[in-house]
Amino acid sequence: MQHFLRKTVAVFESLGDRSLDSFERLGRSTLFLVRVFKSIPFVFLRPWLLIQQLYSVGVLTIVIVLVAGTFVGMVLGLQGYNILVRFNSESSLGTMVGLTLVRELGPVVTALLFAGRAGSALTAELGLMKTTEQFSALEMMAVDPFKRVIAPRFLAGFLSMPMLAAIFSAVGIYGGYYVGVYLLGVDDGAYWAQMQKSVDFHEDFMNGVWKTVVFGFVATWIALFEGYDSVPTSEGIGRATTQSVVNASLAVLGLNFILTALMLETS
């Protein structure tokens, strides 16, 4: 009995400990974000810092986005055709491919790829800088690492995401076009016309863009914070990198649901 009691208490204790921990982390990550915001104006004085990061965050992610976008579009063309042909409405293939990509798959899949490719790289990079005392060295050289290192990376991630998602959706639509029109014989004009008729600029396209903006913000924030907050050992970097991808992916999927619900509500 006493043993059982002691165990129960221990469970509650660790539960309390953990929730305190996560509250504390939430607080620290918020303070982190505030410091990043304060440092962003500095980046505009040093555009070269931003360009470098746009390269490592954006350009290096483009290949995986191109490949993934093409295949996702192609599979949408294939699946969509096979469903629609049952209702004799394969001419609506463009509608299906366009809406799916612009509203959901473009933003979400790109954000997941972004978290896996660019986000993990950012976390590992910051973790390594922390482990090798580069942040301390910068501070000792009277250089604020938030201005010099973190804010440019944040801005680059934030700006890259919408562009990457747009590239994903665009090549996906051509992937669907290739399968639907070239291979399966859907009418060329119908593909584009049906798509254009049903994809609304505000309700579909802009809402998709807003999603990518939010995802880019959150995924970059999580990646940078996990790196900055990592335990400065090689094991700590590994853990932080995994955490960064897992947390960013979960955040993206959860936020996607909330945003979609909000957008359907207000439309």
């Binding site: 580069q134 501070e139 000792m140 050289m141």
Partner: peptide
């Protein structure tokens, strides 16, 4: 930071910036 501009510190681990070469590291300050 004003004070630290007048201080130099040699870290036990060196703490060079890994994305810059030797010249740029020394030129950094």
């Amino acid at each position: 930071f004003e004070m630290r501009k007048r201080m130099g510190m040699l870290f036990q681990s060196g703490a060079l910036l890994t994305d810059l070469d030797v010249f740029d590291n020394v030129a950094y300050p």
